[in-house]
């Protein structure tokens, strides 16, 4: 179990049941990498939001999960992609819209606050790809040295 093989995976997101697998895989991968309980919970919740987004708004897609290492700090990168209608107005989609139950991009803004890095690529007709990453400890930031 020394290899990173168990952490990398590509999971389909085509039904609500897949959301459960996504959450369980991310939970296990994060735990294995040494994420603390709160950090695990945040990442799993973000994954759940993004996977549901892929399912509901993208018409299904997939999640790729890969361990990453930057300057010795370990982390997990999750990529959610779909070939759905895409998002025309990203700013609007990232605004908190969870009050409108069926609103477009619901959960995107919330998910962004739960991860260290968030990147979205989408345009109408080209589908949507959301890539997020979180690090086991605080991401390397030289300015916080004292």
């Amino acid at each position: 179990m020394q290899t990173a093989g168990g952490l990398s995976a590509c999971l389909p997101i085509t039904s609500d049941l897949d959301l459960v697998w996504v959450r369980q895989h991310v939970r296990q991968a994060a735990a294995q990498l040494g994420f603390g309980l709160v950090a695990q919970t945040k990442l799993v919740t973000a994954a759940s939001e993004l996977a549901r987004n892929t399912l509901v708004h993208g018409g299904g897609g997939q999640m790729e999960c890969a361990p990453v290492n930057r300057g010795g700090v370990r982390g997990l990168r999750l990529t959610f992609s779909d070939e759905g209608p895409g998002i025309a107005d990203l700013d609007q989609a990232l605004r908190d819209g969870y009050t409108s139950a069926e609103g477009l991009g619901m959960g995107l803004g919330g998910a962004r606050r739960l991860v260290h890095e968030f990147d979205i690529d989408s345009s109408p007709g080209r589908g949507t790809t959301v890539t997020v990453a979180s690090w086991v400890s605080a991401p390397p930031r030289p300015r916080e040295e004292r």
Partner: peptide
């Protein structure tokens, strides 16, 4: 609880 608050809920 922490995660829900962070999520905005």
């Amino acid at each position: 609880a922490i995660t829900l608050v962070e999520l905005g809920l």
